[in-house]
């Protein structure tokens, strides 16, 4: 079953074209990596899916979540979907969390907004359960903490709990582990894998790290200058790349071989 279908998505600012003719699909439970360097258009592609393009940027083409067209959909429709059908984990957990709100309430918020739990108390106890499932120590106590009282890895677990709160059909992760230490990174990646497998969630995983994409995703899309230049199974693309740029990216990443 196709969860997300992107057809000929293009994004432009004024006369300048930033993303061109991007098309791909993600099925339920499928994990797709979007790789490329800074400025290649990865984040703009994800923002278009969420309807969160910055002002002044304009998207054309089609982005469908199930039967629902997202491009040009009203803000009301989009806010009904965000945090419910689609959710997102950002790179910087400190800026993505509200510094003046206890993290337990931040996890309860999407459940209350979308009415997936009857009341505040039910949402709070669901939040504590989620904290347990993302392996936060002392879930009860952590729920009462503010973001600054948590480590970077713990904050990223909180963000993941928020994203998973309403069992979304599609989870988008934008460089979720780039700011983390390697040992913490390995734990967060394992959590994302386990959570998406368990729930049959479609995953769009943005990263510039080929080793990370190879350990998380089944399929991979390679972006360069706003276009997808190569796509296919992770193993095929990363072991026998067809596009010159993918080859270059691989050679630069594989310090072990140099």
């Amino acid at each position: 079953m196709t969860v997300l279908r992107v057809d000929e998505l293009s994004v432009s600012a004024g006369g300048q074209s930033l993303v061109r003719d991007v098309s791909f699909q993600i099925g339920a439970g499928e994990r797709v990596g979007l790789i490329g360097e800074s400025g290649s258009g990865k984040t703009l592609t994800a923002s278009s899916v969420l309807g969160l393009l910055p002002d002044g940027l304009h998207a054309t083409g089609s982005v469908r979540l199930g039967e629902q067209e997202l491009l040009g959909a009203s803000e009301r429709t989009l806010s009904r979907l965000r945090g419910m059908e689609i959710s997102m984990v950002f790179q910087e957990p400190m800026t993505a969390l509200n510094p003046s709100m206890r993290v337990g309430s931040q996890v309860a918020e999407p459940m209350l907004l979308h009415g997936t739990r009857p009341d505040r108390r039910a949402a709070r106890s669901a939040a504590v359960e989620l904290f347990d499932s993302v392996r936060l120590p002392d879930p009860e106590g952590t729920a009462r903490a503010y973001p600054h009282q948590l480590s970077g890895g713990q904050r990223q677990r909180v963000l993941l709990a928020i994203a998973l709160a309403n069992d979304p059909a599609l989870l988008i992760c934008d460089e979720p582990t780039t700011a983390l230490d390697v040992t913490v990174q390995a734990q967060i990646l394992a959590l994302i894998l386990a959570a998406t497998r368990e729930r049959d969630t479609a995953l769009l995983f943005i990263t510039h790290d080929l080793a990370v994409v190879a350990s998380v995703c089944e399929r991979v899309l390679v972006m360069l200058d706003g276009e997808i230049i190569e796509s296919g199974g992770t193993r095929e693309v990363l072991s026998s790349p067809r596009h010159e740029y993918t080859g270059k990216l691989l050679a630069a990443s594989d310090l072990e071989a140099r």
């Binding site: 390697v182 040992t183 990174q185 390995a186 790290d209 080929l210 080793a211 990370v212 190879a214 350990s215 992770t234 193993r235 990363l238 072991s239 691989l250 990443s253 594989d254 072990e256 071989a257």
Partner: peptide, 20 residues
């Protein structure tokens, strides 16, 4: 040992995919 095991390695990840 823990650090080395956690470090993402493209080769190791691809090797796991080959086995898959």
């Amino acid at each position: 040992q823990q650090l080395l095991a956690a470090a993402p390695s493209l080769r190791a990840a691809l090797a796991r995919l080959e086995e898959g």
